[in-house]
Design a protein around this nucleic acid. Structure first.
Length: 523
DNA sequence: TTCGGAATGA
DNA sequence: TCATTCCGAA
């Protein structure tokens, strides 16, 4: 009888690679303790001796190549006691993973597949970081070059022979942990030749994770599933997150940060990913000496809020924003104190053109368009002040939508314009009223000034609106000569009267304003 | 070579 | 459920 066909097909502990029980016994498949194919694939991928058979594809994160399909099939068949196994059958099993989004095929590359790790992780925990650079050891999926929010754990310090980058990826599987006891190592059949040196390391990490899971529960990270959980590691080293937007803080307790127990189970419901940009970051292998997910709730909130800000400012789909129960999403432009604003240069710019507009302009401008306010005529209506009913809509709409050369009433531009020429304009936001305390001091001042001068401004605007009505009617009824003379006199009077006149660009005539008359540009 | 339907088994 | 097996089609 083959030893390789025992009921419990767990890899040997000597392989430094074992899964928790749930990996062999899916929640939904009682009685089945068989290893699943994707586990087996990962297992092979992590073993040096099978590198000639199956290997990670360098440069593509999570992508692997089956170099010897027949051999892989044979190994799989041996594992499953299916001597008739061949690559055709194995690949059929792999194809079933397509729908589950565990795997997908790399088109155009023979025998090349790619793990869809992000589908598993990102929807629930988009704030997981991956180190964006670094070479990829065989024992771990290649790291994506694209910016990602995953971090791999630091490697065990005991592997000095490996290069620094490779050392981040201890040879280990997806690290999983349940509330149950660790699997019995004796339970697994052992191949003495397979990475025995890693077993103790694995056990250590499992213990480490076990202890951290307790921490996790204490910080209130919700467990989404009771049983199958996978713990992804994160760095918690000082200076690890130069990105101010990173939700991860340096744990005050090095190596003892919060742990996110990411439920990743073969039976996991794989909902569509929230982040379409996600470059398939992966489940990191075990992380012996590494740190688990570490995050500061406040910073996470900060991160999520800033993301919400981006979602709004950039007119992204709300789906882009991660679901985070209980998170209050403040209105953009408002969440930070003024002195914090430099951290969000985005706020000082109008959002990029919407898709509609972008497509329209894409042919002419591509790269710089996003960052150039004047090129982004967004139908982003920011009411600068209460609009009276008699104010024609055309004052706003053409300005913002039709005239790309005019900056939309956005923060900086308008603030300058307003403060210089007219009045402080409140940075209005639809939801601003709901967040009075979140307003920056300057905004409060602006608002106060605005409310103080609300009546001041009214005449200005009303005048602008009225210009076309009574005075013009009167003028129109008088001879042209008289009209000119009257205008001339009026303008000169105003000029002589006060040089401190405020200015209302939209006016076409002279209008005294409370606290000072206004000179109006006669365009 | 890859895909996916269908029947079937564990 | 997760394969396994078979097979026709692209």
């Amino acid at each position: 009888m083959k030893t390789g066909c025992s009921i419990v097909e767990k890899p040997k502990g000597g392989g430094g690679y074992h899964f928790q029980d749930w990996a062999y016994k899916a929640e939904s498949s009682p009685g089945s303790r068989q290893i699943q194919l994707w586990h087996f694939i990962l297992e092979l991928l992590q073993k040096e001796e099978f590198r000639h058979v199956i290997a990670w594809q360098q440069g593509e994160y999570g992508e692997f190549v089956i170099k010897d399909p027949d051999e892989v099939a044979r190994l799989w068949g041996r594992r499953k006691c299916k001597p008739q196994m061949n690559y055709d059958k194995l690949s059929r099993a792999l194809r079933y993973y397509y729908n589950k989004r565990i795997l997908h095929k790399t088109k155009g590359k023979r025998f090349t597949y790619k793990f869809n790790f992000n589908k598993l992780v990102m929807p629930n925990y988009p704030f997981i970081n991956i180190r964006p650079n670094g070479a990829v050891p065989q024992s771990a999926p290649p790291v994506p070059s694209a910016a990602s929010r995953f971090h791999f754990p630091p490697l065990d310090a005991r592997s000095p022979t490996e290069d620094a980058q490779a050392s981040r990826f201890p040879a280990g599987p997806l690290l999983q942990h349940t509330h149950d006891s660790h699997p019995n190592l004796n339970d697994r059949k052992t191949n003495p030749t397979e990475l025995e040196d890693l077993s103790s390391e694995w056990q250590r990490s499992a213990d480490l994770v076990a202890s951290r899971n307790n921490i996790n529960s204490s910080i209130g990270v919700p467990h989404q599933k009771r049983k199958p959980e996978i713990v992804l590691p994160l760095f918690a080293r000082p200076g690890m997150y130069p990105d101010p937007h990173s939700p991860f803080s340096v744990s005050p307790l090095p190596g003892r940060g919060g742990v996110l127990n990411v439920p990743i189970s073969p039976a996991l419901s794989l909902t569509p990913t929230v982040f379409s940009y996600s470059p398939s970051p992966g489940l990191s292998p075990a992380f012996p000496g590494g740190n688990c997910f570490t995050f500061n709730p406040e910073e996470m909130k900060h991160y999520l809020q800033s993301q919400a800000c981006s979602v709004f400012n950039y007119h992204l789909s709300p789906r882009t924003f991660p679901r985070y129960p209980g998170l209050f999403i403040p209105p953009p432009q408002r969440q930070l104190h003024p002195e914090e604003q430099p951290a969000f240069p985005i706020k000082l710019q109008p959002p990029p053109m919407g898709r509609k507009h972008r497509e329209r302009h894409e042919s002419s401008d591509d790269v710089g368009a996003v960052t150039q306010p004047q090129m982004a005529p967004i139908p982003h209506k920011m009411k600068v002040e209460p609009v009276s009913d008699d104010e024609p809509e055309s004052q706003d709409l053409p300005l913002q939508e039709e005239n790309p050369s005019k900056p939309r009433p956005n923060v900086i531009v308008d603030r300058e314009r307003v403060s210089v020429f007219a009045k402080p304009t409140p940075l209005s936001w639809p939801a601003a009223a709901a967040l009075p305390s979140a307003e920056p001091a300057s905004v409060n001042i602006a608002n106060k000034a605005n409310s103080d001068q609300a009546e001041d401004d009214k005449p200005c605007r009303e005048t602008a609106a009225a210009i076309g009505t009574p005075e013009k009617k009167e003028e129109s009824s008088m001879p042209a000569k008289l009209r000119l003379k009257r205008r001339w006199n009026g303008e000169r009077q105003v000029e002589e009267k006060n040089s401190k006149f405020s200015f209302c660009a939209s006016d076409l005539g002279v209008t005294p304003v409370v606290g000072g008359p206004k000179v109006v540009a006669d365009a």
